[in-house]
Design a binder for these strands. Structure first.
Length: 261
DNA sequence: GTCCGGCAGC
DNA sequence: GCTGCCGGAC
């Protein structure tokens, strides 16, 4: 053991974990995903060298609001009727709406349709899908998280995701107790997600993070016993997994409650 | 009944 | 920086 010196003080003071923990996060997660993750979802592109960005874009927009099991049949019908982004772009709005019916958030279906037209035009001009984060964020209905997902999983470029699943995993692992609806906490979580995302295989990492959040690190009754991050999960160490993520509660005022009587 | 979510619009 | 969106899970 070397003596602690000024130089051995953790250099990454912005994070709650040691460099060793931070650096081993991705390998542990990826090992778990290889052994126990889901590899059969129809939009997954990690087992091909020629990923299809359309598939990832479409599925990610649906998954913004809806769980995997609900999305599956909708995604299948969309791919059946609109096999390419050009098919979706050329479709009448009524047909798109029919296929979306039941998913809710119809404004998103409008953005999806508009986004398809934008993408078809870009492909017409450049011969390919957008290739940068900024160009994807310029597509209607695509924000920072969806753009990162498409970069990583749909193009096999470098990309970072920080959606609800990731935020739950990270707030627990690092015991981040800031209100996740606040922008300061959002920034903190994005910084941690970036720090943990490996430069190679960021798509596989994104896939694994989402799978972890959905199948192990669930909102209630997380399966910590099976978790590859359990050993240094700060929330688990205190038995406070379900205290995270912290979110300020809407305090409905008594007047509006009384109105319902 | 109450909470959840990623984005756009405000 | 904050809120509405819309159906599902709980």
């Amino acid at each position: 053991m070397t003596q602690p010196t000024a130089n051995s003080i953790p250099s990454e003071t912005n994070f709650n974990h040691s460099k060793t923990s931070l650096n081993s996060f991705a390998p542990r997660l990826l090992d778990w995903f290889a052994e126990n993750g889901r590899h059969d979802l129809p939009w997954q592109q990690h087992q091909t060298d020629t990923p299809n960005p359309y598939v990832v874009w479409l599925s990610e927009v649906m998954l913004q609001q809806t769980q995997v099991t609900t999305v599956l049949p909708y995604f299948a019908r969309f791919m059946d009727t609109f096999p390419t982004v050009q098919d979706l772009a050329a479709a009448d709005w009524d047909v798109v709406a029919e296929h979306w019916a039941g998913l809710g958030y119809y404004a998103r279906a409008r953005n999806l349709h508009k986004g398809a037209k934008q993408l078809a035009e870009i492909i017409d001009e450049t011969g390919d899908f957008p290739q940068t984060l900024a160009d994807w964020e310029a597509i209607s209905g695509v924000g920072p998280s969806t753009a990162g997902a498409i970069m990583a999983m749909g193009l096999h470029h470098y990309g970072v995701i920080c959606d609800g699943n990731v935020k739950r995993v990270l707030t627990r692992w690092a015991a981040i107790d800031g209100d996740i609806t606040k922008s300061a906490t959002t920034k903190e979580l994005w910084a941690l997600a970036e720090r943990l995302t490996p430069t190679e295989n960021s798509g596989l990492f994104a896939q694994a993070m989402m799978d972890m959040g959905a199948t192990l690190c669930m909102r209630s009754k997380p399966a910590c016993r099976l978790c590859p991050l359990q050993e240094d999960c700060l929330a688990h160490a205190e038995g406070r997994e379900t205290d995270y993520p912290v979110k300020a509660k809407n305090s409905p005022n008594r007047v509006s409650l009384a109105m319902h009587c």
